[in-house]
Simulated assay, not measured.
Amino acid sequence: MNQEQIIEQISRRTLLIRTEAGYSQETMAAVLGMSKKTLVQIEKERTLASWTTVVAMIALFSDSEIIQSLLGDAPLEVVRTVAHNGLDRPKGKTLGGKVWWRGIEQEGQYRIQQNLISQHYRILDADDYVWFSTFDEEEALERFRELLKNQGA
């Protein structure tokens, strides 16, 4: 998944996200910091939302079933991964991937998981903190090996 795909998917579902939240067009536009006219254009699929608007929508409505059906249970992690072209720092405690995630490999205190929806990979430690996130499986495996090597050092 890349930035353009996220923009397209969220833009096409803006009306559903707004309806799910129970907001009027006026309220949704105000929450997102845009004009009602712009929101209407996005909802009618005449234009796509900007990356900034999409990120704001994902952040503000991260518990939306519609957003989670597109990006999984950690939509902000997907956005961070796309925006930063991979995360490479301990970032945020997770629930450990009991839902939405499939285990790829586990050794020592680290494990690799793949999101069932977005297909991105992440490395968690034994306390369920994210250490790395990427859409590239080889990159995830390489970073996994580095973490294991440093763990033993």
Rank of each mutant, 00 (worst) to 15 (best):
Q3M: 15
E4L: 10
Q5M: 10
Q5D: 14
I6T: 06
E8W: 08
E8F: 07
Q9N: 06
R18F: 05
T19I: 13
T19N: 14
T19A: 13
G22D: 08
S24H: 04
S24R: 09
T27G: 03
T27W: 00
A29L: 05
A30L: 15
G33E: 13
S35R: 08
K37T: 14
K37Y: 14
V40H: 04
Q41C: 11
K44A: 13
K44V: 11
L48E: 10
L48K: 14
A49Y: 07
S50H: 10
V55W: 11
M57G: 08
A59I: 00
F61I: 02
S64T: 03
S64K: 04
Q68P: 01
S69W: 00
S69E: 12
L70A: 03
L70V: 03
D73G: 12
D73A: 04
D73P: 01
A74G: 07
L76D: 01
E77I: 06
E77Y: 06
T81G: 03
V82N: 03
N85A: 12
D88Q: 13
D88H: 06
P90R: 06
G92Q: 11
L95D: 15
G97Q: 00
W100Y: 15
W101G: 01
W101M: 14
R102C: 01
R102L: 05
Q106I: 07
Q106M: 15
Q106L: 07
E107N: 15
E107I: 07
G108H: 09
Y110M: 09
Y110C: 06
R111D: 12
R111P: 08
Q114W: 00
Q114I: 05
Q114Y: 02
N115C: 09
L116C: 13
L116V: 02
S118W: 02
Q119H: 14
Q119R: 02
Y121C: 12
R122E: 04
I123K: 04
L124T: 09
L124E: 13
D125E: 12
V130T: 08
T134H: 01
F135D: 01
F135M: 05
F135K: 11
E137P: 02
E138C: 02
E139I: 10
E139Y: 00
E139F: 02
L141G: 03
L141V: 11
L141Y: 11
E142Q: 09
R143Y: 10
R145I: 03
R145D: 12
R145K: 15
E146D: 12
N150Y: 13
N150M: 08
Q151G: 10
Q151I: 00
G152W: 05
A153P: 01
